[in-house]
């Protein structure tokens, strides 16, 4: 929302958006809540390693599998590591995976989509075919295949997650760009001698940013779930790295035997984060949705 929009088309959109945002947040407490939750997540991601009560990687076999207590708020796992500390420290990695994959797909899918909508013709056809092909795969299986083929690393999880979200971004960016292709401010820019690519980057892109932000917030949640799913089947990060998905997968074997806390807390954190991004996406959509704005 902070990206300056060109003022040729509308008067002071930034100020209007901010005002509207305040209105929406006060109008919709759920969105306010989501912003609060996001703040908690960001704090954990930035400060996590400095604020946790225990070393998240230090094993203590004497204290293995202890239920939540005053010392270990979320209990301990099989190796006696503090689950609370691990859950907090994992925030950085999980958010990192999500942010990177979303940034990557935004850069690739967003630009491809805008170009597709703006130029039309062969550009549109080729990009359309590529994203149709990706869409024809069961997406989670495609992600599995990519990670299995490229290797078991965080980078590859990021790439796989970006690839499966590619068609979504193309579709949104394309339809938004198409609408604005012949808009007054674009025509004006053309008349003043700007090149097509320049118009695309300086006029169209900033204009569709709000819609893309909504999309990014929604796919953040999906990206986290996707990484967790990959971890669950063993295609995840390397041990002993703390990551919510793999912690749930490890804890899953203990649920039946009564050690519910091992899977529950990372599972809840996962849910908390995805929930937060989904609500945030909804809230942002309300903010940028013109129908709601009137």
């Amino acid at each position: 929302m902070t990206i300056a929009s060109p003022s040729a088309a509308r008067p002071s959109p930034l100020l209007a958006t901010l005002k509207h945002a305040r209105y929406v947040i006060s109008d919709n407490p759920v969105t306010g809540l989501a912003f609060g939750m996001a703040l908690v997540l960001v704090v954990c991601a930035l400060l996590g390693p400095y604020i946790v009560p225990h070393d998240p990687y230090a094993s203590n076999t004497a204290m293995a599998l202890k239920p939540p207590s005053a010392t270990y708020w979320f209990g301990t796992d099989q190796l006696g590591r503090d689950i609370f500390s691990r859950v907090i420290v994992a925030t950085r990695l999980d958010l990192g995976i999500a942010v990177c994959s979303v940034a990557l797909v935004f850069a690739a899918g967003g630009i491809a989509g805008i170009a597709s909508g703006f130029f039309g013709g062969w550009t549109d056809r080729i990009i359309g075919r590529i994203s149709d092909t990706i869409m024809a795969f069961p997406l989670f299986v495609l992600a599995m295949g990519i990670v299995a083929a490229l290797g078991n690393t965080v980078t590859n999880i990021v790439i796989a997650t970006a690839i499966i979200n590619f068609p979504l971004y193309v579709r949104v960016a394309r339809s938004e760009a198409q609408v604005r292709r012949q808009a007054g401010f674009v025509q004006a820019a053309r008349l003043t001698g700007n090149s097509e690519w320049r118009i695309l980057l300086t006029q169209i892109l900033p204009n569709i940013m709000p819609i893309m932000m909504v999309q990014m917030s929604l796919t953040m949640g999906y990206a986290i779930l996707n990484a967790a799913g990959l971890s669950f089947i063993g295609l995840g990060v390397r041990p002993p790295t703390a990551e919510w998905g793999i912690m749930v997968a490890e804890g899953a074997t203990y649920i039946i035997s009564g050690e519910w806390w091992i899977a529950l807390f990372p599972g809840l954190s996962l849910m908390f984060a995805v929930f937060c991004f989904n609500l945030l996406g909804d809230g942002l959509r309300d903010i940028v949705d013109p129908q709601r704005r009137t």
Partner: peptide, 14 residues
């Protein structure tokens, strides 16, 4: 055989 191997390797690593 991650059930045994993974915690084992984590302990060895530590």
């Amino acid at each position: 055989f991650a059930g045994i191997n993974e915690p084992l390797c984590v302990l060895v690593q530590e």
